[in-house]
Design a binder for these strands. Structure first.
Lengths: 217, 217
DNA sequence: TGTACATCAGTGAACGCGCGTTCACTGATGTAC
DNA sequence: TGTACATCAGTGAACGCGCGTTCACTGATGTAC
């Protein structure tokens, strides 16, 4: 009998065993789908549980509360934001300024591909932005960009009296984030309706204007 | 008796007459305070009514529903965004490039002064962004900036084949919006902790990099 | 100027809803011997 | 290998809450004559 039962379970994968195995991670996946479908204003824990196919009380065994889940979701978002940037950089010219351009394109691509997640990360007050986990994840995205900018411009910290290094970093960050936020919300029709290739070309030109060339010292 | 009652009412302004007089506008003011205090994720119509000192059923006589009120609130936000930019421009050098810089500073100031309203305008799905009222208001903010950029750079539409005009406009918009969003959320500590004067100086330098100087034709 | 009456702009009670969370429970799993 | 037992990870019912909206109502205002 035992073998038959096991076979039946294997043949009918929709019948989850009583214990899920990795519900925590399944809930995060479900949460992301919930976020995509409902927007982060319509997000609910019950909806997430339903998507994951468990009772709505089950998440309590894996996350302290709904904001705990959102915090972890945002943290993962930052990790993916970084890896999206790295993916773009890998395909680009290794020259530092080209690397910055690629990073910005990656940043924007992430936002456009995951608009609701992006808003959770930057526009919501629900994740715990003081918690170790999230601070660390967000920080690494920032540090990556700062290091890249320093390398590209030859401006090192501490900032000189003209704040040139600050202008570099803030500029790249502002352009990336501004375009990402506007484009992912569809609020920049001027660029939004352009073919992707041309749009990227424009973005790269913009980045080139923002990042000062290396000063020979 | 009548005169005495009138006097009493005047002496005790906290006693509102049965009819409010201009409840619609009072509700919008209250809604903005609610937004400021609770954030746009904690916003509720009942909270607004309470702040305005009326029953929570009263708003129904002035707005179709809660999203109608939020739509009007967002539209007013865009109008104030424009007027904040104009205020900064009035104090600045009339030279076009200086005017753009001032506009960007005004944009950022608005976002920093009204972070929750700013998010309602750009990060929420609740206002009706297809409605005439809101489209018109948002449009006017955009048109103002476009006209200014065209004037500053001498690049006219239709865009040339290098998309120089597009880079100009998108660049200014991106820098303004990116810095506004990040600074108002406190997510750009690099600039956030700087004295305002220095911060503005950095922003202006950035804008100067983004906006190409007029090409002599 | 007075009166009748329609309309407007409030009130307060009640509605149903979906939410996050708690709780006692139970099935499944892992471990000690 | 078997058995007893602790622990883990689910269930489903129930909790209280705040929400937006509806409703019959009533007080105040405006208008016609």
């Amino acid at each position: 009998m035992k073998t038959i039962d096991t076979k039946a379970a294997a043949a009918a994968p929709q019948m989850r065993p009583y214990h899920h195995g990795d519900l925590a991670s399944a809930l995060l996946d479900a949460a992301e789908r919930e976020l995509t479908d409902k927007g982060f204003e319509g997000f609910s824990l019950r909806g997430v549980a339903k998507r994951a196919g468990v009772s709505h009380a089950a998440p309590a065994h894996h996350f302290q509360d709904v904001n705990g889940l959102l915090t972890e979701l945002a943290a993962r978002g930052f990790e993916r934001l970084v890896s999206r940037q790295l993916a773009f950089r890998k395909k680009a010219d290794p020259e530092p300024r080209a690397q910055i351009g690629a990073s910005v394109l990656g940043y924007i691509a992430f936002a456009v591909e995951n608009p609701s997640l992006f808003r959770l990360m930057f526009g919501s007050q629900r994740p715990d932005f003081n918690g170790e986990r999230l601070v660390q994840a967000a920080r690494s995205a920032f540090d990556d960009l700062v290091a890249l900018a320093a390398k590209a411009t030859g401006n090192s910290d501490p900032p000189d009296k003209d704040h040139t290094a600050l202008v570099d970093v803030a500029g790249v960050w502002a352009v990336a984030h501004g375009l990402a936020d506007l484009l992912s919300a569809g609020r920049l029709p001027l660029l939004h309706n352009l073919p992707e290739a041309i749009r990227n070309q424009i973005i790269l030109k913009l980045v080139e204007r923002v990042v000062e060339p290396v000063q020979p010292s």
